[in-house]
């Protein structure tokens, strides 16, 4: 049995999670604390991938970022970055696709920080970065971890988008697509093994998430 698809999936999930964590914290901070009225539109756009079918995402993705489009050819020509048919391509796609799963818990977490805590931080005159790093993020640790685990798990389950923009190359052959291909090639044994591994990994992740949230809840209660 070939384990390469799991390596691709693992690498994809890990990188997606790390990049999203870094990108989303400032975005969520803005969404939670800004007084700007238009932010509801920004938030809706960021959460769109939750309900958008991956095929719709894949279609627009190829139509606007594909190799022959203005943006796609510019990036390819000058930066050597291709949005489709490459590992960095599915990574970028999966970052868009998983955005809501990081934005949603972290933004809610920041919004639930008690008002008096926010006020006392302001009275103490801490800089925004300092407040975020030293006070807010430690306070909403559970929310951050939920975002991390949900994003990681969601990337593992990503299928439709990779099928559309991956082009079945070695570096884009993720486990979920590999199962589908093995099944359609009538290799049920391999599909069986792949599926079992993914089932176990997914279950473990959800279990960890649940244990984590439960522990926190009892801590507060």
């Amino acid at each position: 049995m070939d384990y390469a698809p799991f390596l691709v999936t693992g690498k994809l999930a890990l990188l997606t999670t790390i990049i999203l964590l870094v990108v989303v914290i400032p975005i969520s901070h803005f969404l939670a604390f800004s007084k700007w009225k238009g932010k509801v539109i920004l938030e809706s756009v960021l959460l769109l991938p939750i309900i958008l079918p991956p095929t719709v995402l894949g279609f627009y993705y190829l139509s606007f970022l594909g190799p022959d489009t203005g943006i796609g050819s510019f990036f390819e020509e000058y930066l050597g970055f291709s949005f489709a048919f490459s590992f960095e391509g599915i990574l970028f796609g999966s970052i868009i696709y998983c955005l809501p799963f990081m934005v949603s818990p972290i933004t809610s977490g920041l919004r639930e920080i008690p008002k008096n805590m926010v006020e006392s931080v302001q009275i103490l005159g801490k800089s925004k970065i300092n407040a975020l790093w030293k006070v807010y993020l430690p306070t909403i640790k559970t929310a951050v971890w939920s975002g991390v685990i949900l994003t990681f798990a969601h990337t593992i389950g990503e299928f439709g988008l990779v099928l559309m923009i991956g082009g079945k190359m070695e570096q884009t052959n993720v486990a979920s697509v590999a199962i589908y291909d093995e099944m359609n090639s009538l290799n049920y044994d391999v599909a069986n093994n792949y599926a079992l591994i993914l089932l176990l990994v997914s279950f473990t992740l959800i279990l960890v998430l649940n244990l984590f949230i439960r522990k926190k809840r009892s801590f507060f209660a």
Binding site: L62, S63, G66, P67, D68, A84, F85, M164, G167
Partner: peptide
């Protein structure tokens, strides 16, 4: 899918 790729010039 191959047709789709060539159709949108991917």
């Amino acid at each position: 899918q191959v047709n789709q790729y060539i159709q949108i010039n991917s």
